[in-house]
């Protein structure tokens, strides 16, 4: 729009008017929408797939639980190699030269080996074998710890179905005893509260640690895959069962399906950065040349105001 040019749509309308009851329209709409909501709730209810507990994970998929525990000790799990905001294991993702994840810093410290494995094992004071294993592990140099955990992780990956009982013989130090001890703790249900409680005392509101540990395993992801919730299934906008999820997130999940995002190691940073830009563009549509002119070039507005144009004549195209 040229500076100084009078905007023909600015100002009070002086043309023909029609009667209108704003309050009546609001009340009628409120009643109609309320009734529609009640009908939909009665007909379709709402989804509520129970949450997964660490106890359930350890009982239903013990091999996956063991492998995840060992990966925490070996430093190869997602959490152990995550970087900011949890630890310094990596620099995280970036958008070109922008290292936003790194610049934000480590503000939610998580040490997966200590927080998910060693600290809970220390609470098993009645189990002498586990305590001895933890003492031996902690007394060893870091390189030795890594060697034990790495070797056991490799051996588990080669065992049939990752079964610890079928692992080839090797020097794994105290790691098998520690993993087995944590499995027992989890199967008893005690680990669920321990991970939440860490550092917060009696009251519990922060589930960062148990969620990170749970997500490091394959069990949660397998359940999500079965519910068509994975990233490559457009899962961000899906919901458990046949319920509608968050369809308004379709554009977020769309980018994850196409190149270069689908193959990039910085996919999250790129997609979320792009969506921030697009969101800003949506807000600034009135000021973006070309985009703000689209409505004039498409005939859809003639449909909206067809009765007015029919009565008073249509404008030139």
């Amino acid at each position: 729009m040229t500076a100084g040019r009078v905007d023909p749509a600015a100002g009070d309308w002086r043309g023909p008017r029609r009667p209108y009851d704003l309050v009546k329209e609001f009340i009628v709409a409120l009643v109609a929408v309320s009734l529609l909501t009640v009908v939909l709730a009665l007909l379709f209810s709402s989804p509520n797939e129970k949450g997964v507990t660490l106890e359930q994970w350890a009982q239903k998929a013990p091999n996956d639980f063991i492998a995840t525990t060992v990966s925490e000790l070996a430093g190869t799990s997602t959490s152990a190699s995550y970087g900011p905001p949890y630890n310094h294991s990596s620099t995280g993702q970036q958008i070109g030269p922008l290292h936003l994840q790194k610049w934000a810093g480590v503000r939610i410290p998580v040490d997966p080996a200590r927080d998910f494995v060693i600290s809970p094992l220390r609470t098993m004071t009645a189990d002498a074998a586990v305590q001895a294993a933890v003492r031996r592990y902690e007394a060893a140099p870091a390189a030795q710890q890594d060697q034990w955990a790495g070797a056991y992780a490799d051996a588990l990956s080669k065992a049939p179905e990752g079964d610890p009982a079928q692992v080839a013989a090797g020097d794994y130090g105290p790691v098998p005893a520690m993993a087995s001890g944590l499995l027992g703790l989890a199967q008893s249900g005690a680990l669920d509260s321990q991970l939440v409680n860490a550092g917060t005392g009696f009251y519990q509101a922060d589930y960062t640690k148990p969620l990170l540990f749970l997500a490091d395993g394959g069990y949660l992801a397998d359940l999500a895959q079965a519910q068509h919730l994975s990233g490559n299934q457009w899962g961000m906008m899906n919901e458990t069962g046949n319920f509608p999820g968050q369809p308004w997130l379709w554009l977020y999940t769309f980018w994850y399906q196409v190149r270069p995002f689908s193959t990039s190691t910085n996919a999250d940073a790129l997609v979320w950065g792009l969506m921030m830009l697009l969101s800003l563009a949506l807000v600034l549509v009135p000021f973006i040349p070309g985009v703000r002119s689209i409505p004039r070039r498409l005939p859809l507005y003639r449909l909206v105001w067809r009765s007015y144009y029919r009565e008073h004549g249509a404008p030139r195209r």
Partner: peptide, 15 residues
């Protein structure tokens, strides 16, 4: 907002 092509007195440009 008034219809596209209509001034505040209700006159349509082309018409």
């Amino acid at each position: 907002v008034p219809p596209i092509g209509v001034d505040l007195d209700g006159r349509v440009e082309g018409a």
